[in-house]
Computed example of a mutant assay.
Amino acid sequence: MNMTKLRASLRVSGFVAAVVAVTACTPMTRFNGFAPAARELAQVQIGQTTRADVVTLFGAPTSDGGMRSDTIYYVASQFDRIGPFAPKEVDRTVIAVRFDSAERVRNVTRYTLQDGRIVQLDRRVTDDGIEDIGVLEQLLGSFGRIDAGSFLGAEGGGF
């Protein structure tokens, strides 16, 4: 009787392990950002559409080109992650909309990963001054600052 229970539990355990192994290897896809599709970009007329029109049509850009204020960018990326491995970028689209001095569209360019071009975007990251420390470092760092009186609940910090 015990041998049949053992075999049954081994079968269930094997089935659970197989299901976990298969689901762990299933790719998970994550999408970031927004880049207008070609049919949406067809609404933009070179020399006629203004910067305000582009922002109205597509929303706020991902970046405004930093020092080059004549260009705005829309960026969309797709990442696949399989099991415990780091995510891998499998698709990226960058739409660069350039404007002339009158704030009218001068050029619209689409870049993808296959183009192999690096498009430097303005990140404008401000350092918050807070160091990234782990929980263990926080516990060890505060270990010497414990006041015995407040720890034991005594008033006035003494006994």
Rank of each mutant, 00 (worst) to 15 (best):
T62R: 04
V55H: 08
D64Q: 13
E103Y: 08
A18P: 12
S150T: 15
V108K: 09
M3N: 13
L140V: 14
L152A: 11
V12S: 00
T50E: 09
M28P: 01
A96N: 02
V55A: 04
R11M: 13
L139E: 03
E131M: 12
V105K: 10
S77M: 10
E155M: 07
G158H: 13
L41N: 10
Y74V: 00
A21F: 15
F58M: 03
R51F: 06
G157H: 00
D100L: 00
F15A: 14
G153K: 06
D80V: 13
T126P: 13
A37M: 04
D128Q: 12
T62S: 02
S63H: 12
I133G: 07
K5V: 00
V119R: 01
Y73M: 12
R11G: 11
A42D: 11
T50Y: 02
D132P: 09
A21P: 09
C25T: 15
S9H: 04
A52N: 14
M3K: 09
V75H: 01
D115T: 03
T71P: 04
V97E: 05
F85C: 15
D91Y: 05
G149R: 02
G59T: 08
A60H: 11
D122A: 15
V54P: 02
G149S: 04
P87S: 10
R145V: 10
R124F: 13
N2G: 15
A76V: 08
L152S: 13
G149N: 01
T93A: 01
A8G: 03
R68N: 01
Q45C: 06
A17N: 07
A35W: 12
Q138E: 11
T50M: 06
A18E: 14
T109H: 03
P87C: 11
G153H: 10
A60C: 05
T126C: 11
R81H: 04
Y111Q: 02
R39Q: 05
K88Q: 13
T29K: 13
A42G: 08
T112Q: 02
L152P: 12
A60N: 14
T23G: 03
G157C: 04
G116F: 07
R106A: 15
I95H: 14
D53R: 00
V119C: 02
S150V: 14
L113D: 06
L41I: 09
K88L: 15
E103T: 06
R145F: 12
M28R: 13
Q138K: 08
G156A: 00
V90F: 01
I146F: 02
E89I: 05
R39K: 06
D70E: 15
R123D: 12
D70W: 11
E40M: 04
F79S: 02
G134P: 03
L140Q: 09
T50W: 05
D132W: 09
D132E: 15
A17R: 01
I118W: 06
K5N: 00
T71Y: 10
C25P: 06
V108Y: 07
A24G: 02
Q43S: 02
T23S: 09
R30Y: 13
F34R: 01
I133K: 12
Q120P: 05
S9T: 13
G83H: 03
G14C: 05
F99I: 03
L41V: 09
M28F: 12
R81Y: 03
N32C: 08
D64M: 12
I118P: 06
G153R: 07
G47E: 01
E137R: 07
V16H: 02
R123M: 11
A60R: 06
P87A: 10
V108H: 04
Q48V: 14
Q78H: 14
M3I: 07
